[in-house]
């Protein structure tokens, strides 16, 4: 453990390191022996055909799988060199540092303001009302939503369009100032224009946050990510620079997928 810490502090660019990670649901193996380094302040795309375990892997990184009954995780996932599956680790603290945006926009059935303010409230990030308002405004601005909703912050979050809802969810995740943001196919429920908007946004915020994104669209992975990892049948087949993966894959399976022959 101590050794790992030293090693990862040497390579400051590595934010999350997975070692021999395996996941099984009630004995059914979903993921095996995943080794991956997630680079800090970069966008890492996880690609692969349906059921390959990419979402499962994403959810192990903020222990979202804990709430699924019968889910078992083996191996180590190090966040800044610390194993997040250590008994000492509190998932509540972990999830503050590793935020998540889900496949389907899932704003709370509350006002836009309350949606963004909820995280800071429960973590006690703002003592006064104006501090909270500042956080909400800043988060909405970063998510590129502020100008569209500034006149109706008290309108319900569910009254927004799909793309706006997803940006609200990103603002909500940003509001607790996480270090890592996990995105599980954030654009799969959106139209191309809303998708373009979200991709732009990801590009803007990647300077501040480490982003791991699951995507079904190889074009999207190529457009927004710097690193790409290809999963197939519960295995991490290949990872590396996005450009390399798409233009010069080492593994024949990767090549088959990116050229559209499997998947």
């Amino acid at each position: 453990m101590q050794n790992e810490t030293e090693k990862s502090t040497e390579k400051t660019a590595i934010k999350i390191q997975a070692k021999n990670v395996g996941v099984s649901y009630s004995g059914m193996v979903a993921l095996k022996d995943v080794q991956i380094d997630i680079t800090e302040r970069k966008v890492t795309a996880l690609i692969g055909p349906s059921g390959c375990g990419k979402t499962t892997f994403l959810r192990t990184m903020n222990r979202m799988n804990d709430i699924i009954e019968g889910c078992e995780v083996t191996g180590e996932i190090l966040l800044d060199g610390e194993d997040i599956y250590d008994t000492q680790v509190d998932p509540v603290v972990l999830r503050r540092r590793v935020g998540m945006v889900f496949q389907k926009p899932n704003p709370f059935p509350k006002s836009i303001f309350d949606n963004v303010a909820y995280g800071p409230k429960i973590h006690g990030l703002a003592d006064k009302k104006d501090e909270l308002e500042y956080i909400v405004e800043k988060s909405l601005k970063r998510a590129g939503l502020f100008d569209e909703v500034k006149d109706r912050l008290n309108a319900p979050g569910t009254s927004l369009s799909g793309g706006q809802q997803q940006r609200l969810c990103i603002a909500r995740a940003i509001a607790v100032s996480p270090e890592v943001i996990l995105m599980d196919e954030p654009c799969s429920a959106l139209d191309p224009i809303a998708t373009a908007r979200i991709e732009e946004l990801i590009d803007e915020i990647k300077e501040r946050y480490t982003i791991v994104m699951v995507t079904h669209s190889m074009q999207q992975a190529a457009r927004v990510s710097q690193q790409t990892a290809f999963f197939h049948l519960g295995e991490l087949v290949e990872q590396g620079e996005t450009e390399t993966i798409f233009t010069n894959p080492r593994d024949p399976r990767t090549e088959a997928y990116v050229t559209g022959r499997i998947g």
Binding site: I67, K104, F108, C169, A173
Partner: peptide, 15 residues
């Protein structure tokens, strides 16, 4: 109550 709401809360670090 949909799972998505629960996940949203957990994802923000709610107990």
């Amino acid at each position: 109550v949909p799972l998505s709401i629960r996940e949203a809360a957990y994802g923000l670090g709610a107990t």
